[in-house]
Design a protein around this nucleic acid. Structure first.
Lengths: 113, 113
DNA sequence: TCGCTATATTAGAAATTGCGAATATAATGA
DNA sequence: TCATTATATTCGCAATTTCTAATATAGCGA
């Protein structure tokens, strides 16, 4: 395989290689959201959030739709979410039960609102 | 989800985010190989190869087995290979219709020298 | 022991990444 | 028009990554 093709794959992995960007993509699992709503949910500086969104845009991992004042973001292809799901399984397989339990608790809390 | 969990996922993605390391893992698809054989196959500096192997070892993506003079490397869990397979599908899906992205890749390659 | 092979580690430089602060742009409504 | 809101971009700096060159370690056979 030519190195340029591996370069492409590496660049996608690189774009995913940040906790904030993973958080952003996880929030987009169920559909599009405005840029600002991530900040509210994740508690980030506005500029910082925008920079991370720019990385995801740069690799066309997300698409954008402008609606008046706001910009809606969505994951371009669910394959990316499949990648994250695989990673979630990998995580559960190798990280201790205590951490996995923490994650369960967090999710329960999220469902509760 | 606690950020420390996303941190774990991000670190795995980071470990995958280099063409050389992707090449190494692809070579390990069919079983273990000695450290040296990658160098022969990929044409890398010995030290550089060893550093990339160290990154994969550091995240326990690969396991090692010492046999006399040599060290055999293997992928610890096929889930990692599934990740690469998903990425391969993602690549084929989008490189064909995205000239802009190809141009980006070319530019990136130019910048890299 | 010595010398050879395989592999790993360290050091230092160049490039890249991530952050907050400040600034810019664009849409909306008074 | 002006002010406000939502979002993006630029700048400067610290931290990280990647590379080459040099050095270190370990196993093996003479």
């Amino acid at each position: 395989m030519p190195d340029s093709l591996r370069q492409f794959k590496a660049e996608i992995f690189q774009a995913l290689a940040h906790p904030t960007r993973i958080a952003i993509l996880e929030q987009l699992r169920d559909g599009e959201l405005t840029a600002g709503s991530f900040g509210d949910r994740l508690g980030l500086e506005q500029a910082n959030l925008s920079q991370h969104l720019a990385v995801l845009r740069g690799k066309q991992i997300v698409t954008t739709r402008k609606a008046g004042n706001q910009v809606f973001y969505a994951v371009r292809d669910p394959l990316i979410l499949d990648l994250l799901e695989l990673m979630r399984r990998y995580f559960h397989k190798y990280v201790g039960d205590s951490l996995a339990l923490m994650e369960e608790m967090e999710k329960a809390e999220e469902r509760r609102g």
